[in-house]
């Protein structure tokens, strides 16, 4: 029987500094195995000697599956230890886990990506996926809020001259500007007024801190979005990733197995508050 607790050995191929506390790691499996995954799924990463943690995949499975990327903020022992590693270091990876974004359901529609902070990581996967199949989708817009200009993750991709550029309209905002910032200031929900968004044929895909999800969902409902047009990716303590250890439960659901992606119609039926 396959043992889903034992990670595959993997190699850090590249490391990119995104901000002072976020790095993007490009990772390949040791045995050259490719990883079949969907945008929105996550991996359990092991830094040997420090422990394991769940992290979303920030790359797109299209066009290449011989590596994956994950963008990680320094938070605790294991993520700090990962940040200290160099290219070529060996780590462990289990997965992918979770349901991922409903990419087939999104086809033929406009998509509004709403990202807060490091919550932009799983959305980056979906954005590159939609851009690789650009003709399948209507308008694509990204509303992205960060605490400060220096905290914007994937800066060289999403800033006006960035490489994502064509095919996606990017609206950035920061909670607190610095002297160089000429853009919008305010929480991400304040951006929605400037972007000519209408709910018709549109799905909003939201990921970020729990409190940001709460306000973004409330704002979008006010704008006339229906609950099944709002798709959220939730964060919980996902220890095993397989719906066994119990830590990520919300009511009868396990975020790791039944989620992490839910529509607000689904989360509305949970007995416990999802965000």
């Amino acid at each position: 029987m396959e043992n889903p607790y034992i990670p595959e050995l993997a190699v850090i191929k590249e490391i990119k500094d995104e901000t002072s506390d976020v790095k993007t790691f490009k990772i390949s499996f040791r045995d050259k195995k490719s990883l079949d995954y969907l945008p929105g799924q996550f991996i359990e990463l092991t830094v040997f000697g420090y422990g394991e943690f769940p992290t979303s995949i920030s790359s797109s499975p299209i066009p290449r599956k011989d590596f994956f990327e994950t963008s990680i903020k320094r938070m605790g022992d294991a993520t700090n230890a990962l940040h200290r590693l160099d290219r070529g270091s060996i780590i462990g990876a289990r997965g992918p886990f979770g349901n991922g974004f409903p990419v087939d359901k999104l086809k033929g529609n406009n998509i509004l990506f709403v990202a807060g902070g490091i919550g932009s990581a799983p959305l980056r996967s979906l954005i590159y996926y939609t851009l690789a199949n650009r003709e399948d989708f209507g308008s694509l817009k990204l509303l992205y809020g960060a605490r400060a200009p220096d905290d914007i993750v994937f800066k060289n991709e999403v800033m006006p001259e960035g490489k994502i550029g064509q095919g996606l309209d990017v609206f950035l905002t920061v909670d607190k500007a610095n002297e160089k910032w000429r853009g919008h200031v305010g929480v991400v929900t304040t951006l929605s007024k400037e972007t000519e968004i209408t709910p018709e044929n549109t799905f909003a895909v939201i990921c970020g801190p729990t409190v940001m999800i709460k306000f973004a969902v409330a704002e979008l409902l006010k704008m006339g979005f229906q609950k099944d047009q709002l798709i959220v990716s939730l964060e919980r303590m996902m220890k095993c990733g397989m719906g066994m250890c119990g830590h990520c439960s919300i009511g009868a659901k396990y975020v790791c197995k039944d989620g992490p992606v839910f529509t607000c119609k689904e989360t509305g039926k949970f007995l416990e508050l999802p965000f």
């Binding site: 607790y5 000697g49 420090y50 422990g51 394991e52 220890k239 066994m244 250890c245 119990g246």
Partner: peptide, 18 residues
């Protein structure tokens, strides 16, 4: 059936078990 997953390591972290 709830469980946690822990690492037991030696002091230098070169050996251990999950």
């Amino acid at each position: 059936h709830c469980f946690t997953i822990e690492d037991e390591t030696n002091l230098t972290g070169t050996e251990g078990r999950r």
